[in-house]
Design a protein around this nucleic acid. Structure first.
Length: 111
DNA sequence: TGCTTGACATAAT
DNA sequence: CATTATGCCAAGC
């Protein structure tokens, strides 16, 4: 944790950090859990502001389709997929992961 | 101080 | 199924 504690992204980083291994969440889901329903876009932007050696598991955040978001640098998108596969998450021929199976299901939005 | 951009989501075409 | 248009908020210039 360092620069990830910017300001308004704090609730977002907080939720992302709570994603357990072997599980992935969508931007919309993160936004909702962070208390910002409909602000999925801000979630993506928050992750974009993360530094390289961040403690936030940004690689566990994918799009609603289960595909990896096409960010500025394609190299990092591949890195994300690599990390997810390392956790045991498999991808389909369409570059999509089994959201129905890997979707993170938090019990409560606090504590 | 105000406009533009940006790791998205959803509905419509 | 792919593309287009709109909403949302914060950071950058």
């Amino acid at each position: 944790m360092r620069a990830e504690s910017h300001r308004g992204w704090e609730p977002i980083y907080r939720v992302v950090c709570r994603i357990p291994r072997r599980r992935v969440a969508t931007y919309g889901q993160i936004a909702r859990l962070a208390g910002l329903p409909g602000h999925a876009r801000q979630v993506g932007y928050a992750l974009h502001a993360l530094p390289d050696g961040t403690s936030v598991p940004w690689h566990r955040v994918v799009k609603a389709d289960g595909r990896i978001s096409p960010r500025s640098a394609t190299d990092w998108s591949f890195e994300q997929r690599r990390r997810l596969e390392a956790e045991g998450i498999a991808f389909d021929d369409t570059d999509r992961l089994d959201l129905a199976r890997c979707r993170w299901r938090p019990r409560s939005t606090s504590t």
